[in-house]
Simulated assay, not measured.
Amino acid sequence: MTREPERLFRRGADYQSHRPDYPDSLFATLAERAPARRRALDLGCGSGQACRALEAHFDQVLGIDVSLEQLRAAPPGRAHYLAARADALPLADASLDLITVAQALHWFPLPAFFHEAGRVLSPGGVLAVISYGLCTVEGLEGLVEDFHDRTLRPWWPAARWQVVEGYRGLPLPWPERSDLATAPIRRHWGWRDMAGYLDTWSALVTARAAGEDPLAAFLPTLRERWGEGKRTVRWPLRVRCCARP
Score class of each variant (00 low, 15 high):
A203H: 03
E165N: 03
V233I: 02
P214H: 02
E138D: 09
F9R: 15
G139D: 09
A112C: 08
S202W: 00
W174C: 06
P173K: 05
L152I: 12
W189G: 03
Q49K: 15
A31R: 05
P245E: 14
F27N: 06
A74W: 12
P154A: 09
A128Q: 04
W107L: 07
S17K: 14
F114D: 05
W107E: 09
T2D: 13
L30S: 03
V144W: 14
E6R: 14
A88D: 15
G166T: 00
D179M: 00
W191L: 12
L170S: 05
S131R: 09
R33A: 05
L170T: 03
E224T: 15
R177A: 15
G169W: 08
G133M: 01
F58C: 07
R225H: 00
L43P: 05
G166D: 06
A210N: 10
F218M: 11
G227P: 06
R208M: 11
D213L: 02
E145N: 07
F113W: 08
F9K: 09
T151F: 11
A112P: 06
T206Y: 13
A74C: 07
E116H: 05
R7W: 12
D213K: 08
S95C: 05
L110I: 09
A36H: 04
L41D: 04
R72D: 12
A159K: 14
E141S: 15
A86S: 07
P90I: 02
P154D: 13
F147P: 05
R11A: 15
V61L: 03
A128C: 03
W155D: 13
L198Q: 03
V239N: 00
G46W: 06
A83D: 06
A31I: 04
E141T: 10
D21P: 07
V163Q: 14
G139L: 07
L121H: 03
Q49W: 11
W156M: 01
W107V: 01
F108M: 08
S95D: 08
R7Q: 12
L222Q: 03
E32S: 13
A217L: 13
E176D: 11
